[in-house]
Design a protein around this nucleic acid. Structure first.
Length: 616
RNA sequence: CGGGGCGUGGCUCAGCCUGGUAGAGCGCCAGCUUUGGGAGCUGGAUGUCGUGAGUUCAAAUCUCACCGCCCCGACCA
């Protein structure tokens, strides 16, 4: 007992820099979690339902359990980590001057009709009926709600700017929930909405969120990259995504090694394909030639025709808002649907069926072309602007046309960037080769403009006495997804390697032999002192063999493990092991608390060195 | 929704092809032994074999329908 009494700094009565740093980031009132009083159902075997490491570890470490596809219960340990992420998000949003609110998850469909998204976002909307048969929506996001609020409550430029946020459950009728929390039907999101009087103000609001996001992910111990992104159904002017590179990600991003360019593949541009587009006229007019059985770009590139893909014009037929639209690309390019949506001015489009193609152009896919087509919107990729001597379908099954000069022979409605960039193309700014890889989107910032404020009538009276729509931004973080992304980025063969800021507990303590009273007594005492010092501890007090407790400790992944064994205790020592590095040290029992506090402080400090790698 | 796969005790899975009335390992309960990386022995509990219909003397097994789950694609934080 006496050996611990000198260690009274944990009482908090004395200034203590370690404790001070710790408190800066502290998530919850510290306490000891006793394994035997908890629900921590670890799994020895890999559950069949989980495919990716983070999902497997969340189940195996006893953090979550599935109720149904895309529906998960957070168990106590998982919830602790989730709360820590939320806490970080709150602190940084508050720091950035955003105001926390809480909006209803259940929303009236009228406001969605008003914004035009009742149809535009119809696919993800959960609809429910009340007893009177009236329809309601389970909110997938809250632009309509917040803008309605602002329309009612904000009238003057004097009340601007304002930024409102909430942390709340969202519902999306995902076509296919996947990967545990990564894409769920129900998930927790932090969503924020800024309202400004001026465009410059809106840009400042945007930058504040950008900076807040950088700090948030850094504090979570998550390495993110920031990419330019498409605005999609959200509408708006520009946006950035915070993504976590991971092979299991659902986004594809293009970037350069220097980090000077990074963009979502939906948005990415380049100096063009490595193979230049033919630009020499080969004949005075298109000439039809027979191509029996040729229905693909590859067929035409092969014997006997041998027209390289990049010398072909690919003609795609889409039905957009009920109208037929042709999209023309170089034969070796893929249509970028996000770019197409922007060019077509709608997100409601689909590829035409073979029958619709025939009705519109007189031929089936494989023989389609735009030569001679009139009264149909034709969107062409800018690469084709100077294209000459090209080959394309003749709109007659089994025939193609050669000597096609795009500008001369095609009635183009508009030239747009429609192609998807490919790896190794040169970046526009620096000429560096583009890399492409998968990534998980964890945060997204949009500069929205006035789309919603105009639709919902959120206007303010400006200094000049004029009514003007608020200029909006919106900013989302997938909180539950972020939590899983942290795991996806921090695990090894034995379990989770939590960054300390979001670890369910900072320290796990155990007695190697639960039957050995002095060990148990020592570990209890150190755990109590750690807890009193503001460090949260999971005490594995089960009467299990050492191996079992070690395995579970590795699963759960507390950054620091304290083990008290009969042998070392005989020498007056305990063992401290770092989960991430595996480094082991033995320290005198009396020094254990101070040593662990120093290690905890070290780990908190190291969080400042990771984080978003790209500055605006 | 299109394509593929799977539903058998809490978990991982065998049994199904070739119908005969349900198994293994782990976990769980009790006891003894053991105690620094998922212990050993003994005894024990736990299954409407996803649901429904059909074929059959007999269905986990064959047929049909439905439901659920997982993976690939379109969608998204």
């Amino acid at each position: 007992m006496g050996s611990f009494s000198g260690d009274s700094a944990y009482s908090g009565l004395r200034f203590d820099p370690v404790l001070a740093i710790n408190r800066l980031f502290r998530s919850e009132v510290p306490m000891i979690f006793r394994w035997t009083q908890q629900l921590i159902p670890t799994l020895r075997e890999v559950p069949g339902e989980a495919e990716i490491p983070s999902h497997q570890w969340m189940l195996r470490a006893g953090l979550i359990r599935k109720l149904g596809a895309g529906l998960y219960t957070f168990l106590p340990l998982g919830l602790r980590s989730l709360r820590k992420v939320e806490r970080i998000v709150r602190e940084e949003m508050d720091r950035a001057g955003a105001l926390e609110v809480l909006m209803p998850a259940l929303q009236p469909p009228e406001i969605w009709q008003q914004s035009g998204r009742y149809k535009a976002a119809a696919e993800v909307l959960f609809k429910v009926e009340d007893r009177a048969g009236r329809e309601w929506l389970l909110g997938p996001t809250h632009e309509e709600v917040i803008t309605t609020l602002v329309a009612n409550e904000i009238n003057s430029y004097r009340q601007l700017p304002r930024n409102f946020y909430q942390i709340q459950v969202k519902f999306r009728d995902e076509i296919r929930p996947r990967f545990g929390l990564m894409r769920a039907k129900e998930f927790i999101m932090k969503d924020a909405y800024s309202f400004d009087a001026t465009d410059e103000g809106a840009t400042i609001s945007y930058q504040k969120m950008y900076e807040a996001y950088t700090r948030i992910f850094q504090r979570c111990g998550l390495k993110t990259i920031v990419v330019e992104a498409d605005t999609g159904v959200m509408g708006g002017k520009f946006s950035h995504e915070f993504v976590v590179p991971a092979d299991t990600g659902e986004d594809e991003v293009a970037y350069t090694d220097s980090g000077r360019y990074a963009a979502n593949l939906e948005k990415a541009t380049s100096r063009g394909p490595v193979e230049p587009t033919p630009s020499v006229t080969t004949g005075p007019a298109p000439e039809k030639f027979a191509t029996p059985g040729v229905t693909t770009i590859e067929d035409l590139a092969a014997e006997p025709h041998r027209v390289p893909a990049h010398q072909q014009i690919k003609t795609l037929v889409y039905i957009a808002d009920g109208k037929t639209i042709l999209a023309l690309l170089r034969g070796d390019d893929q249509l970028n649907e996000a770019k197409f949506a922007a060019a077509a001015g709608t997100t409601l489009f689909r590829p035409a069926t073979a029958e619709e193609c025939h009705a519109a152009l007189g031929a089936h896919p494989g023989s389609l072309g735009a030569v001679g087509v009139k009264n149909v919107t034709v969107l062409a990729d800018t690469l084709l602007r100077e294209a000459r001597g090209m080959v394309t379908g003749a709109n007659e099954d089994g025939y193609h046309l050669r000597h096609v000069d795009a500008a001369r022979d095609l009635a183009i409605t508009g030239w747009h960037d429609l192609r998807t960039v490919r790896a190794d193309e040169s970046s526009v700014e620096t000429g560096e080769p583009l890399r492409i890889r998968r990534a998980i989107e964890v945060g997204h910032v949009f500069k929205l403009g006035t789309k919603y404020s105009e639709a919902m009538n959120a206007r303010f009276l400006d200094t000049d006495g004029q009514q003007k729509p608020c200029i909006m931004g919106c900013y989302g973080i997938g909180v539950t997804r972020t939590l899983q992304a942290v795991i996806e980025q921090n695990w090894d063969a034995n379990g989770i390697l939590w960054p300390i800021a979001v670890a369910p507990v900072e320290v796990e303590a155990l007695a190697i032999n639960a039957q050995h009273a002095p060990s148990v007594e020592a570990v209890e005492r150190v755990a109590a002192e750690l807890s009193a010092a503001g460090i949260d501890v999971l005490l594995d007090d089960r009467d299990e063999r050492a191996g079992v407790k070690f395995k579970d400790a590795d699963f759960v992944g507390a950054p620091i493990r304290l083990s008290v064994g009969e042998r070392s205790l005989a020498k007056g020592e305990v063992e401290i092991k770092l989960r991430r590095t595996g480094a082991v040290e033995f320290v005198p029992v009396a020094d254990a608390v101070n040593r662990i506090r120093a290690l905890v402080a070290e780990q908190w400090a190291s969080l400042k060195e990771v984080g978003a790698v790209r500055e605006q």
